[in-house]
Design a protein around this nucleic acid. Sequence first.
RNA 1: GGGGACGUAGCUCAGUUUGGUUAGAGCGCUGCCCUGUCACGGCAGAGGUCGCGGGUUCGAGCCCCGUCGUCCCCGCCA
Length: 631
Amino acid sequence: MSLDFLGNLERTHRCGTLRAADAGKPVVLMGWVNRRRDHGNLIFLDLRDRSGIAQIVLDKELTPTGHARGEQVRPEYVVAAVGKVRLRAPDAINPKMETGEIEIEATELRVLNDARLAPFSPAEEAIQNEEVRLKYRYIDLRRPEMQRNFRLRHEITRAIRESLSRQGFLEIETPVLTKSTPEGARDFLVPSRVHAGEFYALPQSPQIFKQILMISGFDRYFQIARCFRDEDLRADRQLEFTQVDLEMSFPRREHVFAVVEDFCAAAWAAAGITLPKPFLRITYDEAMRRFGTDKPDLRLPGLTDVRSAFNDEALATLQIDPALPVVALRIPAVGELSRKEREDNHPLFDLKKGAKFIDDFKRLAKSFPESAAKVRELAGADEADFVIVVAGDPAHPVKASDTKFAGRLSEREINVYAAAGNFRTELAKKYADRHGAFRVTDEVVLNAAAGSAAADAIDGVIGGARAFHPIWIVDFPMFEYEVSSGKWVPAHHPFTAPYEADMANLVSDPASVRADCYDLAMNGLELGSGSIRIHRKDVQQQIFASLGISDEEARKRFGFFLDALEYGTPPHGGIALGLDRIVMLLAGAPNMREVVAFPKTAKALDLMAEAPTTVTEQQLRELHLRVALKS
RNA sequence: GGGGACGUAGCUCAGUUUGGUUAGAGCGCUGCCCUGUCACGGCAGAGGUCGCGGGUUCGAGCCCCGUCGUCCCCGCCA
């Protein structure tokens, strides 16, 4: 068909903003044809732009040429409608539309562009087939839900910037082409053309640069920083992601917490939700004991220690390791599960952790009725709750350390808790519809998105108080025992400061040393992680020494930073929070792809751009590279 | 690297349990009709390498083996 030129036509309004008060105004709207309803001599077009939808009326009597154009348009054609806002007749008002009281009586319709038939319609809900959504991402992003997610992302980012600016932080950019940073992930490498055989690394975080900014006297820095990690993807992990990264001089961790709680409150407020402050705190060991994870979801019941429900005979018969924890996990309101249903759940349990489980309570009750009853009692289970006992498996070959230090959990104990904790969250996900523990969150998010006045209060409780459960995890161990090498390895990057009180034990009792670092978790997601850093050269040397990092190796990896440390480094510390994960939570998104414009698949592919690809011989030559594939 | 779920029309799905005539439905799409629809309606029509490859069989969407892709989880990512 022939297309019309835009000419000097100027858009006067956005579709979704028009209301009854605008009646009589001449308007020019531009957008995409959402739907067309052709009644012969009368055609209705739903015109969509990012603000919403307005109904255009093309009446053959009023505008024969406009009506003729209207007959030709199809979904997703780009058109300009010239006309006048008019009130709809009372019986023609559509209460389901924001603009349902008005419509545009068109005098002209210009078809600015046609469109191929899309594989799915932005006028409808997301299709199940995510491959198609991602390949045609530009269509998918037209859906109001996606438009809302990215508007929300913008508002959240802006609120965080404003909060941090108000708190005296300066936004400073750090390099993307840089040197390997001390995080533990694989680096993305970028070959240097100018320096044959040498590579830049993309930052896994701006860690070293932000610490240097403290040495440089900037006092309070932040950055909305893109970070890159070449590891396998998950629902909440992409190859590249965005962190709210900050660092401050002369802080105790309470100062960092206060800063974060302030900007989180601002971010939640930007989404229309009140986030309760101050956040809860829990130690790492307690988090493992109570939830079997360091990112607990407090909307679900925790683990219960049920060791006391079993006597020695029961433990022996059931082949439970008496030296390891025996815990119960409870999924509420699931009802009785058939043998088949229970068996279907078994693959969700990680057997490699050296733990086992008992999910057949009828059978347990036959041999050990008191134990079965006591477990349910201790776990606070009522009739409909599904309860599983998780315990150490003595038959499992030990691949973890059971060395215990200074009252901390041993790795084997942690493994049992972790197996239980992971089973707990997997089952909770599977039976979400039955226990309803996540429903309040969905409701609050939905209300907030709808801009409902009641968004922030559910049953008189401020929404966030029941929907979002932020919690600081503190007192992580400084070191982890690596069974394969028999060495103590850092649980964090090597610039994390140990507790001053634990410094004396660095060599004698490394497992007892606590790191002055902290995680922020919310609703089962790790939102962020930070620490007070080492600012003294002597302490840094001790840490390297205790980690078995030689002076030579330290110099090679972080030489410039170690130099900088010697030129007047203030005590400093900071944190980085995953922006994508924050937006995920506030958008009620089940995965990060819903809040990242152009995400990659679980196999690390960009289905739209079709990246990665091979490159030309010419490009390789310039970069002094040759590809040698292992066939 | 390992475990699990899925793959049938553009989309959403049924059919696979127990192999059997020409693989169906809804939405969407195309054409015609329709002046108050808004998930418009009516009539007619087009649309399929049942992910791909191999095998078993008289016969495979259905059974077997392999492979590819998407998703979730473990490992990994502190």
